[in-house]
Design a protein around this nucleic acid. Structure first.
Lengths: 206, 206
DNA sequence: AAGGATTGAAAGCAGGTGCTTACTTGCAGT
DNA sequence: ACTGCAAGTAAGCACCTGCTTTCAATCCTT
């Protein structure tokens, strides 16, 4: 279905944003190669030439998406702020809840990232380096603290952080990408609690 | 580079196998849409018409790959056989080692599966249902046993099994697909031990 | 050695795709 | 109201891609 308001003329910036938004949706659904500029134009309710007026090559759309999704600081700031008051176990519940809710709110972004990784574009690389590693390092720091306090066992914090991220991310990916939600349904809150139970007790000194 | 032995003529079955093998490599590298039948022909050292003699449509190649990778029983049988003597902790080390070594031996297959999931072909669906769920159910059974023996806490075995699988699979995927092995290098054996430490102690009654 | 069957190549077609060119339409400032 | 400029379109080019057709080379059987 073409766009909601088939407004005839738009200011350049407004039009650019709209085109990028449409491209994001279609790249997430069909990948970069699987999306034609004709289809982007159709969905945006414009002619193809407009796209090439603003983005000299199709690749340019990908770069605009990278700008839009890798330079906003809201997401991670929001999380790290929300973590400030929390201690011990709660931090892990907070991180897992954050990741899962981000995926549930916009499942298409994970498809976009995965396509980008497979098709070897820069989006996944930049996003993971800028956003993913930031989160991992935050967790590593928290884990290191708990080890220093003698609450956690002395395991490699980098591996431990990736173990927890693995549980949570693979849950999201398998639910959406492999469409496991057809066969495996549990309330997210129960899944999160179980993951944190396993991880936190697994790390704790006995 | 075209194929090793540019043998002029081949028997039909032999040629079919060769074409499927080439297609698998290219689909894993560039996806179904990103691979042209011309390129498959070139890599196989034949003309395009030969491909369409054996596979009436490009789609047919995908189905042949499904046959080749989803109907062999060697992989899983080998694992479950190897697990037979093992108890408790060792079983999880065995499973993790098995999964990681399969990925290291043929990293391209994971790309193929992921492309298939994104492009909504049947390969990933069939493979995961036939191979993935089998492994998960095997783990669930083992976990249930340990709960019944009073060794493990009474957590949902389905969630627990997926927690462990998540750690291991996401490690493999992030290493290869997101090319994390550039930034995160640990011996696989250390990673496996740490994962199992966390999971096994996390599940254990205290 | 003959002849039918099978494997293979060469060329091309119809439709699709990224991108360009040449042109028209509507808006803002005077 | 006029006009200069930015926003938009229609048409098409050159190349690509799945797939077909037509015909030549090679093998197997007798």
């Amino acid at each position: 279905m073409p766009n909601q308001k088939p407004k005839k003329r738009m200011a350049a910036d407004e039009r650019k944003d709209q085109i990028v938004k449409v491209a994001m949706t279609l790249f997430a659904r069909n990948g970069f190669r699987g999306t034609t500029t004709r289809e982007i134009a159709r969905q945006a309710g414009i002619s193809e030439a407009v796209i090439f007026k603003y983005f000299s090559k199709k690749e340019g759309l990908y770069n605009a998406i990278i700008d839009a999704r890798c330079n906003d600081t809201q997401g991670q700031d929001r999380l790290i702020g929300a973590m400030k008051g929390k201690h011990g176990r709660e931090v892990f519940v907070g991180i897992a809840s954050f990741i899962i809710s981000e995926h549930r709110n916009d499942p298409s972004f994970m498809r976009l990232l995965t396509f980008s990784a497979l098709e070897k574009h820069d989006l996944s690389e930049i996003f993971i380096k800028r956003k993913g590693l930031e989160l991992i390092e935050f967790m590593e720091g928290h884990i290191k603290g708990l080890i220093r306090e003698g609450i956690f066992k002395d395991l490699d914090p980098a591996i431990a952080a990736r173990a927890f991220m693995g549980m949570v991310l693979h849950y999201c990916i398998s639910q959406e990408l492999y469409r496991m939600k057809r066969y495996f349904k549990r309330p997210d809150s129960v899944v999160i609690d179980t993951f944190v139970d396993i991880f936190f007790d697994g790390m704790r000194r006995r």
